[in-house]
Design a protein around this nucleic acid. Structure first.
Length: 943
RNA sequence: GCGGGGGUGGCAGAGCCUGGUCAAAUGCGCUAGCUUGAGGGGCUAGUCCCUUAGUGGGUGCGCGCGUUCGAAUCGCGUCCCCCGCACCA
């Protein structure tokens, strides 16, 4: 075999140019069935890393597979620039902020002149889009670049498309206006996302209900997360050492903590401090509880935190462990009570009010849990936290409101909460207030607050009608893997109105309210449709692109007056009608909860049902050599490095064999290293073996053909499910193994036609994975045209043998080897093989059947003894008992076939061991060992 | 906390739905022999423990309990890991 080293880099380049010159991946509508795939356009604010490639490669491999199956495949690609990261980064570059400078330096951008350019957001797009494109090309991605585009108003054509989309959404009533609590940086005056925080990732606004307790001419405001427990209130808690504020809030006088007053001001209230009230002065007074209209006493509690809520808490001892312990503590502390002129009897006199039946926790869940957990004082904070969680969990999800709760009696707590809250608000007896679940500090080092944005635009994903369309769409599309379906359904149900506009960043302005920019997840939901026309649209003057044009093209609205000329418009409509709907879109599983579900929702809103998406794939997060990829570990692998270090084909191979389904795929650099050699080996083998061999047909040829078809069948099924790892397993490893065995069995002289078929099939099936080396081999074999235009191999079920006769020969081969090893016979002269005595085949058959009906030893042995096998009872019982224990009997070829197989393999075995082989039936031999033979396991004597 | 997905041999990863043929595919790594040969090459064999003329036995698929003649596979409980939980791309 020639040991010519292949120049991988040159081969890759060669075929990449070939594809480009031949416009291989430029897809146009024609008579064929089509397949349209997309990979979500990446956000281009940095070089991409290997993680992108895993998601991308699934699209790419699927595209090439479908192409080989005869589909007209469209795989376009665009770039995302919407939102604030690029703008922010540009600003930081302009400020030469050290941290940002480090990021730039890590990307190899240090040149002052170039940095200057990066101060301009647009330059990021100009710079990174081509870089991404280069990476994709270097890896041999089959993308139709004519349709490339980027987002935001920096691309007026896309901008027009998004404006059209939003006009449609608004027409349908899905784009609505409302208020919205956001995490807000009061210094920078911007909303602060998770990634813009120094502290407090994951903290979110939490909704408190502020209950208004009338006390003279003012309202004492108590904050609660559980308005449904209102009927169980027995007292109020204030912190005696806190100086509360009397504030004019809107048109009322409220008593709240100083901190609360400040927050209220941020949340659309007019707040004016008009006085102070010391906590201790309030104690002992009575205030009128809203709606229940009952006067309750105000008691001291140190756990009232002025930073949380209003600093005043309403007490529900039946269902709040803190409150219960607060009462217990007070009772045990007459001295403290005395300070406020109270007596322990005042506390004793407080009657617990049962309001919720918490199933196993009873009607006084808080008290029961405190007792169960042995909590004796309010100081046991940790235990109390736990108790609180437990009480809430059981009470909220399993509890029912009791008769004490008036109109809510019998209602599920889950429902009562919302109902009671609404009534309180409607009657003006409560207000809503938002507070962060924890401290959040923005990058500008400012502590963040909750702000209510008033004129916010939303996409109304909570709309039940819209939800039902989304469910319908989901129900009719294919998911790869289907496991993800539950998650999708869940998200569709759970999604509420989504704030779809922003005040700053890059993007498209809302057509009817231009102060707002459409945010990045909302301008990327139906853009796949834009790919179908983008290359044509490029030649249409901007001013001729309007809603009418899109109505004409996408909605077949013939009454729409198109400005750009009918010919162009019709061409675009034809493209859209041909390519849409989208057949496969793949992304990381993290995008299920937003992007992918938005994608479904928006399609159902804008397009008719026959244009709704047909397939969605999701995959996991990449690990590198088993470790999670992260900046801190320093194991982020830039996309471009893999192609450079390992070669495009080896990288693609490694990526797709890294994992499948929703599991996290792994990048195994050792595998990447070893793949290149294997691919070269395959190339050399193909050249060496193609057309080599004999004409006549041997038994082993049937086996090889069977294996080939079996593997094609398996691989095809895997490819259909985007199970690329399994497919690769079959195409590369299993088939290669079969070929090796085949060549070994036929002494290196295969059937000419068959071996060529095998080589060709393997090459074609491998082409979606490693297209460069496959093209190279394809052409070296003298084939014409791109391998990507070849046909995916077909399989014929009838050619696939059910029983693997070669498994038997390979067992025999192994066994002989074992015996030789154990006996330390290096070079045997003669090897005698004996097929099993016939009665054992009979016994096996009988046993197999008997075991299907019974597992009772007595029964089975009885059955055996009832036949003429009784003659062999001594040996038979041994065999029978061993198989009863194992539970089943191996399915063997049968005596005739075994003997035939051995006879046919005689020459092979002789060659393998350079020894004389004799084959006989056990019955015909006097050798003691011959008797040991059993079905599937011939006995042997070596000498 | 809520929803989803997982925990298999040195590593990666099949198997689990449809219980037995599973000491558990395949690959990587490692070991040995062969290619008559030096450095990402190929082929063959081995790679849980003990034992052995190809065998037999033990341990074993996060942990515990259970169902069953029989469980990596089914049920219950428990621990752990990953993803998402929103205005962030």
């Amino acid at each position: 075999m020639a040991d010519a080293k292949l120049d991988i880099k040159a081969i890759e380049k060669k075929w990449q140019s070939y594809w480009k010159e031949h416009h291989t991946f430029e897809a146009n509508p024609d008579q064929r069935k089509k397949f349209f795939v997309t990979f979500p356009y990446p956000y281009i604010n940095a070089y991409q890393h290997i993680g992108h490639l895993f998601t991308l490669m699934r699209v790419e491999a699927f595209a090439k597979y479908k192409r080989l199956q005869g589909y007209n495949v469209l795989f376009p690609q665009g770039w995302h620039a919407t939102g604030s990261p690029i703008v922010q980064a540009a600003k930081r570059v302009a400020a030469r902020e050290p941290k940002q400078m480090k990021i730039m330096a890590d990307m190899g951008i240090t040149d002052e002149a170039q940095l200057k350019k990066f101060e301009e957001p647009q330059y990021w797009i100009e710079f990174f889009a081509p870089e991404y494109k280069k990476d994709y090309d270097t890896l041999g991605m089959g993308i139709d670049w004519r349709r490339e585009f980027h987002t935001t108003s920096l691309n007026p054509r896309y901008d027009a498309f998004i404006r059209w989309q939003f006009s449609k959404l608004r027409e349908k009533g899905y784009c609505i206006r409302g208020k919205f609590p956001v995490v807000w940086d009061p210094k920078e005056q911007v909303p602060v996302g998770d990634h813009d925080r120094i502290e407090g990732e994951g903290e979110t606004p939490q909704e408190f209900t502020l209950l208004k307790f009338k006390l003279g001419d003012v309202y004492l405001m108590a904050a609660t997360l559980r308005p449904e427990t209102m009927y169980g209130q027995t007292n109020l808690w204030v912190n005696p050492s806190v100086m509360y504020r009397k504030a004019a809030v809107d048109s009322e006088l409220w008593i709240v903590s100083q901190e609360c007053a400040e927050k209220l001001a941020q949340q659309n209230h007019s707040v004016k401090i008009v006085g102070e009230v010391a906590g201790r002065e309030l104690i002992g007074k009575r205030a009128l509880a809203p709606v229940v209209e009952r006067e309750i006493v105000i008691l001291p509690a140190s756990f009232c935190d002025p930073k949380k809520g209003t600093g005043i808490v309403t007490s529900v001892p039946s269902d709040a462990p803190d409150d219960w312990m607060g009462l217990v503590d007070l009772k045990n502390n007459p001295a403290e009570l005395a300070q406020y002129g109270l007596h322990p009897s005042d506390i004793e006199g407080i009657a617990i009010i049962e309001i919720i039946d918490s199933q196993e926790l009873g009607r006084r869940a808080a008290i029961k849990v405190c007792e169960d957990m042995g909590i004796t004082s309010g100081r046991e904070r940790k235990k109390l936290e736990e108790a609180k969680k437990l009480v809430y969990k059981v009470g909220f999800y399993e509890g029912t409101m009791l008769e004490s709760c008036g109109p809510y009696a019998g209602m599920k707590v889950e429902q009562a909460k919302e109902a009671i809250k609404q009534v309180l608000l409607k009657k003006g007896k409560a207000a809503l207030h938002y507070e962060l679940t924890g401290r959040v500090v923005s990058r500008s080092l400012t502590e963040c607050v909750v702000k209510i944005v008033a004129d916010q635009w939303f996409l109304d994903y909570g709309n039940p009608e819209w939800k039902s369309f989304a469910h319908k769409c989901l129900g009719n599309l294919r998911l790869y893997p289907d496991k993800a379906r539950q998650q999708f359904d869940y998200v569709i149900d759970w999604l509420r109105a989504w704030a779809c506009t922003r005040e700053s960043g890059l993007g498209t302005r809302l057509p009817w309210d231009e102060q707002w920019l459409i945010e990045s997840l909302s301008d990327s939901t139906i853009y796949m449709a834009f790919y179908t026309i983008s290359h044509i649209l490029q030649s249409v003057p901007e001013e001729q692109i309007d809603d009418a044009l899109f109505d004409y093209v996408f909605l077949k609205d013939n009454s729409a007056k198109v400005a750009c000329g009918k010919e162009n418009a019709d061409a675009m409509r034809a493209e859209f009608e041909y390519w849409y709907p989208l057949d496969f879109r793949n992304s990381g599983k993290d995008l299920i909860q937003n992007h992918l579900v938005f994608f479904i929702f928006n399609h159902t809103a804008v397009f008719p049902e026959d244009k709704w998406p047909r397939g969605i794939g999701v995959n996991g997060w990449v690990t590198v050599d088993g470790q999670k990829m992260s900046k801190s570990l320093g194991n982020m692998i830039p996309a471009r490095r893999v192609a450079a270090d390992y070669g495009a084909d080896a990288s693609r191979f490694t990526i797709l064999s890294g994992g499948e389904g929703m599991d996290d795929p792994n990048w195994d650099s050792r595998l990447a290293l070893s793949v290149q050699g294997k691919l070269e080996q395959m190339y050399l083998f193909a050249l060496d073996c193609n057309g080599r061999g004999r004409d006549g047909e041997l038994a082993i040829d049937l086996w090889m053909r069977s294996e080939l078809h079996r593997i094609i069948r398996k691989v095809t099924a895997s490819m259909e499910e985007t199970m690329f790892r399994s497919a690769l397993q079959g195409i590369f490893f299993e088939l290669t193994k079969a070929i090796r065995w085949y060549l070994r069995r036929c002494a290196g002289v295969p059937n000419k036609e068959l071996i060529s078929q095998v080589i060709e099939a393997q090459l074609i099936m491998l082409a979606p994975f490693t297209p460069h080396i496959c093209e190279e081999t394809w052409h070296a074999l003298g084939k014409k045209g791109s391998i990507l235009d070849a046909s995916w191999p077909a399989y014929v079920d009838s050619l696939i043998e059910e029983k693997d006769s070669e498994g038997f020969i390979s067992t025999v081969l192994d066994d002989i080897g074992q015996v030789l090893k154990l006996t330390k016979i290096a070079q045997p002269k003669k090897i005698m093989l004996f097929t099993s005595p016939l009665w054992k085949y009979e016994l096996f058959g009988l046993l197999r059947q008997a075991l299907q009906e019974s597992h009772s030893p007595k029964d089975i042995i009885g059955r055996v003894m009832a036949t003429k096998l009784k003659r062999h009872s001594k040996d038979a019982i041994k065999i029978v008992s061993s198989f009863i224990r194992k539970g089943n009997v191996p399915d063997t070829l049968g005596h005739e076939k075994e003997l035939e197989a051995l006879t046919q393999a005689k020459g092979f075995l002789e060659a393998e061991f350079s020894a004389q082989i004799e084959i006989a039936r056990a019955e015909d031999s006097v050798e003691e060992k011959a008797k040991l033979a059993s079905p599937g396991k011939p006995a042997m004597v070596v000498a």
